[in-house]
Amino acid sequence: MKARTVLGVAIGTLAAAALLVLLAGASPADAFAALLRGAFGSKAAVGETAARSTGLVLTAVAAVVAFRAGVLNIGLEGQFLAGAAAAAAVGPLFPDLPIAARAAVVFAAPLAGALQAAPAVWLAEKRQVPPVLSTILLNLVAVAGVTWLVRGPLRDPAGDYPQSRALSDAVLLSPLVPGARATAAVLAALGLAATAAFLLARTPLGLALRAVGEAPRAARAAGLPDVRLRSGAFLASGALAGLAGGLEVLALTGRLYDPFSAGVGYSGIAAALLGGMTPLGGAASGFLFAALGAGSSALQRDAGVPSALASIVPALAVLGLLLARGGRTAESSR
């Protein structure tokens, strides 16, 4: 990608953001300062940004794994919810055994994410249903599933609100640094991003996945197990998104409620796009989106600019990139 493109997109996005801030009746300069303070201005702010980046980094990596193998998994949102629901179900089982409870979450959440993707895998390979359609519909089912779980089987009998029982404080991951919200979950997310980058670039499996994603017919004719590779990448993508949901519960919320996600799965796809469909690029974009999220929460508090800004700006940036680059961008920008 050319530096001029990047610069153009960045300037365009900033200008649009400034316009939105003006619309909200605030001064762009003040707003920008508030945004930066909210994202990086203190130990707590940095911790908040890091904490928010866990889900975005993991869903971005999940998107990269699927898209690079040629699977348009738009179902990350649903897989994230499935993972969160699984975490809320198994997390409270061992309130006094943190190790067991955490292990159960880390096992169950990716499994639930993969299971949430499984019907789409089957539909794609056996019934030729495009994953774009099936995963979108499975997202709707997952959203309804959360609505049901927090009012039914997982409902906290002690609370007034429809939400699941809380994980005990002993089970919840504790901050890496006192006073900041970030936990070891962030490190796990970054580690997985690095692992995915290594797998894709440096291993025979990664080469095979890229070949299947780039040219499915050629990969098949060359004797690569195309169905297994695609299905495996799809399920792995679901598992990563599921883990993101599980860690959200284990590290941040401590329970499931409704609505649980404000589109982190979709934002993950946007982050992957902005990051050039590479795991590390996706992780970096995810971190940027998280900073924007933390910053705009502060912005809403301080200057009354609605925090929805945090989902508009990334979308504008990706649209700018798509407009500048044109052509097909599903493949890598190698």
């Binding site: 025979p204 890229r210 070949a211 040219a215 050629a218 190698r334």
Partner: peptide
């Protein structure tokens, strides 16, 4: 369409199935 993977390098195309290592 069915022979080469256009976006991969020549070396990667040659060793799609069994790259060295």
């Amino acid at each position: 369409a069915e022979g080469l993977v256009a976006g991969l390098s020549l070396a990667e195309n040659l060793f799609l199935r069994r790259p060295p290592g």
